[in-house]
Simulated assay, not measured.
Amino acid sequence: MIEIGLKHTSELTQTSFPNACGHKYALFFDIDGTLVSFKTHTIPASTIAALTQAKANGHKIFIATGRPPLIITNLGAIQQLIDGFVTINGALCFVDNQVVSCKAIPQEDVLTLVNDAQQKDYGLIVVGEKDVAVLDPHGEVDRVFRGEIAVENLHLSKPLDVVLQQRILQLTPFFSQDYEREILLHMPGCTSGRWHPAFTDITAKGADKGEGIRTLSARLGIDMNYTMAFGDGGNDTSMVKAAGIGVAMGNALESLKAVADYTTTSVDEDGIQQALRHFQLI
């Protein structure tokens, strides 16, 4: 687990970051299906080696994930390389445990979905600013998150009434894409990013990975022309389009490949290493 004690601050010191002259890049990586294999639930050795070399070559390494900090537990092999985080699909961004950006879902939209989930009896993860609540009436949340994605720490979830006292940064309901389109008509302050057929991640409008990497880059003085984003799912679309170079994994959705500047091989076929070599960053 990534140990994070976040501190809100209105100012962050800009880091020295070489611009076009040095050709140093800020590299943003999705976790599931990009850094971490869905098959082995680990980071391939080739990816660890590639990121280690990229860091040694002067590039910056950032995480851009839909996961809240509580369940970022699978990056131990590269933790020492990471320069900052875009988490919860851009709703919470931080560097050195200092919050750069935090965007909450409007309370009325939160209650719309929570009430609907309780009435229609479907699974829902409610991500607060500090804690997470899990509604899992049929065990689907556990089956997918723990069984398929090997997520840890959901057992640390808190009661719903406790979490609803906090600002809510993300809602992850387990329902179909058709119903997603229907319910979003009643949640005008929200946007959705689906990366798994069983569920979607709903955040406040303006909170997505693309906006997250722009916000983090602006705060750190990073030229967006020298950013590179790697992803595989629908919630990666905004950052792949926003980055100077957008890279889709070989195992990515076809819709993501269609907007990417480059498609590499899959996470299990040394895709990160192959792409960094292609662009001569390692």
Rank of each mutant, 00 (worst) to 15 (best):
M1Y: 15
M1W: 15
I2R: 15
I2T: 13
I4L: 12
G5C: 12
L6T: 14
H8E: 12
E11W: 10
L12E: 03
T13Q: 11
Q14H: 13
S16N: 11
S16C: 06
P18E: 10
G22K: 13
K24C: 09
K24I: 07
Y25D: 02
A26D: 04
A26P: 02
A26L: 04
F28Y: 08
F28S: 04
D32C: 10
G33I: 06
I43L: 11
A45S: 10
A45C: 12
I48Y: 09
T52N: 15
H59L: 02
G66K: 04
R67S: 02
P68V: 03
L70I: 13
L70P: 07
L75N: 09
I78F: 08
Q79E: 14
L81H: 13
I82L: 03
D83Y: 07
V86G: 05
V86A: 01
T87W: 05
L92Y: 08
C93F: 05
S101M: 13
K103Q: 15
V110E: 11
V110A: 14
G123I: 03
L124E: 02
G128D: 04
K130E: 14
D131S: 12
D136E: 13
P137L: 13
P137G: 15
H138V: 08
G139D: 15
V141N: 14
V141P: 10
R146F: 12
R146I: 14
R146C: 15
I149M: 14
E152Y: 08
L154F: 12
L154M: 14
S157K: 07
S157Y: 08
P159I: 02
D161H: 00
V162S: 03
V163R: 04
V163D: 04
Q166M: 03
R167L: 04
I168F: 03
L169M: 01
L171I: 10
T172H: 00
P173H: 02
Y179L: 03
R181N: 08
R181K: 13
E182D: 06
E182S: 05
I183T: 07
P188L: 10
C190I: 15
T191G: 14
G193Q: 09
F199N: 12
A204M: 12
G206V: 06
E211F: 08
I213D: 10
L216M: 09
I222E: 01
M224G: 03
G234P: 00
N235H: 06
N235K: 01
A242S: 14
A242V: 08
I245H: 13
G246K: 00
A248Q: 09
A252M: 09
E254G: 07
L256C: 13
A258T: 12
A260R: 00
Y262E: 04
V267C: 00
D270K: 06
A275K: 00
H278C: 01
